[in-house]
Design a protein around this nucleic acid. Structure first.
Length: 606
DNA sequence: AAAAAAT
């Protein structure tokens, strides 16, 4: 049985489904297929007279609905009975009772949002660490930030979940991104994970789905589902994590969140989809599969969010993303609302991303604890042949220091999958319980490894870059870059696995001649974040030509990126990007934003 | 050159 709220509201629009592209080929409906054109969300659900032509559907499935949701009184009449569900957003206080018992409580508490669970410590965020974060916004008519959740009308159910999550007040990225998103604007946001970024794009989407009336469902029996929001991420584990968070936020809102990713049996995911989906969280490959099977249609997408957007648009992913966003049945920019989030945003990628955006706002949020350096970064010169024994020394020292194994996890990044396996084996042989996560392992093994690491069962995780981005693993006290990445942005993401949510952390890197191309960027980054830069590293940095190449900091300064529309070298002859009304605002205690790549400015990361 | 992402 379908159980997304949308299904409960209306079961209609057979003619649209029948007319809709490939998705419904062969799916028989009893109504005459009436070709209708796409109706943008802002034009839907007006008064009956403003609606598109009269509903044509008179099939056997229901007593009839209207296309695009129809007027509210109509929803109240037909929708509730067909779904057997109560409530709508206009009668929310009395509504949504059905399904409450059946929805698994993702908080694991007794359903009382007000109850304080003292056992469940630190699920929240250290908000004190966010006080003086610099924030920069640019674009036309930027909506002002909010200071409290109360200022925004997200709805009772969502507010209750916010309390359950112990979010007391919005983080900087939430303060700025939520009003922008609620205003319906497209957004390119440079913000650290672990500071409530997922919530920043989930809250407005959930709230919008709850309040919106853009409802569209295929006729009963059609196996195609029509999510209203799509969230894409570059790794399966990250998609899982976003799904888990989104489920908390949407608990008892009636908004249904489903995740789809590869490496896992597709049938269970298909079953979940058939039960109804409003928000689909997915990795690109599996989504393409679902689209080609016509099990998912993007026709009704109103919100598109790309997490780790710079990764999603880099060489490896770009074709797939273009296919999903531009070559299937997704509404174009300006019709859908698009939000791109990442901790780093190279300018080349920003330019690429404009293909997906419409009159967007750029938002940059400085690093967590920019004034207090929550992550201590160390670089040590270690020859390849000495790396293992050097790592062993670090681990022994850690153990000797009485760092509780269960309390402090160590994440070791290596360059290759083979290298990960062999290092894990060697560690294990030497008495350090370790596991590994990389793309050559089965999905089951990957998820098992992550669970085992998180639980402290194997407090050392050897990982490739599959674990570099977005994963929120509490208690990672130490990130070791056993092999340094070639790109400074990857380094930034990797060390961001520690020092999460305002907590402190340590990052150690093993550097040798093989990494000389990274020297300059690494030295700059460390200096910008007030780290001690070894003299030998500075010498390497001075020797290496800057070249303006890949390792140049994408944003410089305190942010993970700056709005490339302000960079003349990217705008020569393109006055569009200068189109007036560029408003810019700077919040924070660190003084005016200097711009450029000058030294001495605190760096942004993650 | 490596990593990730569908079967």
């Amino acid at each position: 049985m379908r159980s997304s709220w949308a299904d409960s509201v209306v079961n209609s629009a057979a003619e649209n489904a029948a007319a809709g592209s490939l998705a419904n080929a062969g799916v028989g409906t009893t109504s005459a297929p009436t070709r209708t054109s796409y109706v943008p969300p802002h034009l839907r659900n007006r008064t009956p007279s403003a609606d598109p032509p009269a509903p044509a559907y008179s099939g056997p499935a229901s007593g009839g609905g209207t296309r695009w949701g129809g007027p509210r009184n109509d929803l109240n009449r037909s929708g509730f009975s067909t779904g057997g569900r109560g409530g709508g957003w206009n009668s929310r206080s009395g509504g949504w009772d059905r399904g409450k018992e059946r929805e698994v409580n993702p908080f694991g508490d007794d359903d009382n949002a007000e109850q304080v669970d003292s056992e469940q410590e630190n699920t929240g965020i250290n908000f004190d660490a966010y006080e003086d974060i610099p924030v920069e916004t640019s674009g036309d008519n930027v909506p002002p930030p909010v200071n409290t959740f109360a200022e925004i009308d997200l709805g009772d159910a969502l507010n209750q979940n916010i309390r359950r999550c112990k979010y007391v007040k919005p983080t900087p990225v939430q303060r700025h991104a939520i009003p922008i998103s609620l205003a319906g604007r497209d957004l390119m946001a440079c913000a650290q994970t672990g500071s409530g970024k997922t919530a920043a794009f989930c809250f407005p989407v959930i709230s919008g789905i709850m309040k919106g009336q853009f409802v569209q469902r295929p006729p009963r029996g059609a196996r195609t589902v029509y999510p209203i929001a799509l969230i894409l991420s570059p790794t399966r584990e990250l998609s899982c994590q976003i799904h888990e968070e989104a489920r908390k936020f949407s608990y008892q809102t009636g908004v249904k969140v489903v995740v789809a990713y590869g490496g896992a049996p597709i049938h269970q995911q298909l079953r979940e989809l058939e039960r109804g989906v409003d928000i689909l969280v997915a990795t690109p490959g599996r989504l393409v599969d679902l689209l080609e099977r016509a099990r998912v249609s993007l026709q009704m997408i109103r919100y598109l969010a790309l997490d780790e957007a710079d990764r999603m648009l880099d060489m490896g992913f770009e074709p797939q993303i273009r296919k999903i966003v531009q070559q299937m049945d997704m509404p174009p920019p300006g019709v859908r609302q698009t939000m791109l989030f990442s901790a780093t945003f190279p300018k080349e990628i920003q330019r690429l991303a404009t293909d997906f955006l419409s009159n967007y706002i750029f938002l940059a949020v400085g690093r967590v604890g920019s004034s207090t350096d929550l992550i201590v970064q160390r670089v040590e010169f270690v020859q390849e042949s000495d790396k293992r024994s050097h790592l062993m020394d670090l681990l022994h020292a850690q153990r000797a220091n009485g760092v509780q194994v269960k309390q402090s996890l160590t994440l070791v990044f290596v360059e290759t999958k083979k290298g990960a396996d062999s290092l894990e084996h060697w560690l294990y042989m030497n008495g350090f319980p370790a596991t590994t996560i990389h793309g050559d392992r089965t999905q089951q093994e990957r998820e098992q490894a992550l669970r085992s690491f998180k639980s402290g069962n194997t407090p050392i995780l050897v990982a490739t870059d599959v674990a570099a981005r977005g994963l929120d693993i509490p208690h990672v006290g130490h990130v070791v870059n056993f092999d340094l990445p070639n790109d400074i942005d990857d380094y930034v993401h990797r060390i961001g696995r520690t020092g999460r949510a305002g907590k402190s952390g340590l990052a150690t890197a093993f550097f040798n001649e093989n990494n000389s191309s990274l020297a300059r960027a690494l030295a700059d980054l460390m200096q910008e974040s007030n780290q001690e830069v070894p003299a030998w590293l500075s010498r390497y940095a001075a020797r290496s030509s800057y070249g303006g190449g890949k390792n140049r900091r994408s944003g410089g300064g305190r942010f993970g990126g700056r709005d490339f529309r302000k960079d003349t070298s990217f705008n020569r002859g393109n006055t569009d990007y200068y189109s007036g009304g560029n408003s810019s605002s700077l919040y924070g205690a660190s003084g005016g934003y200097g711009g450029g790549y000058g030294p001495g400015v605190t760096s942004a990361w993650d």
